[in-house]
Amino acid sequence: MAGRGPAGRPGAGGRFAQFKLVLLGESAVGKANQSSLVLRFVKDQFDDYRESTIGAAFLTQTVTLDENTTVKFEIWDTAGQERYKSLAPMYYRNAHCAVVVYDITQASSLDKAKSWVKELQRQANENIIIALAGNKKDIVDENPDKRAISTADAEAYAKEAGLLFFETSAKTANNVKELFTAIAKKLPLDQAGPRNLRANPRTGPLDLRPEATGQQGAGNCNC
């Protein structure tokens, strides 16, 4: 894995592409499921007691696919909390790819993941690449009784919805690199488009009003 930050530009002739990736999922009570996955990917670390994200964290990581190809991910690690749900569109609006995380030891988490996938397919970029990641594989490897969602079920759903699918373990790093590499391989590297995402200001003034008010919840009418 290349060093972090934008320093990963390869020499002349190499292909370099930059993509926006958003991480979504239900935040497990207390501990952050998805954040630990990012942490493993970006920093190759794991922290058992990691608390979930507050707000959203912005991180970057570069993946070298082959000698000539480098992919830089700009990652939005969104907080899974319900109260930030209305902010999610902002994070996935221009995303090229998304990782939707669930917890294979918690049955309800796949439902939540499914609803994220649905929302992404309806509202995000048309060509967004979505990967479904069933995390906490280490727990199940150790104690198969803890599994709440079978691999077959999740895989069938992923296939049907057209998603990449991996069962991962942020703790043991199992499949984490593979997950992000698979996404990188699927991205349209040949299109020049995403090369300089930030230099392209969004076209036209965005009308933020409806979102902005919706964001403050129904309480707004109380003022």
């Binding site: 954040s35 507050i54 707000g55 959203a56 964290a57 991180l59």
Partner: peptide
């Protein structure tokens, strides 16, 4: 500890 950059509604 989150590192990197954060964007937080507050």
């Amino acid at each position: 500890a989150g590192g990197g950059e954060s964007f937080i509604p507050i």
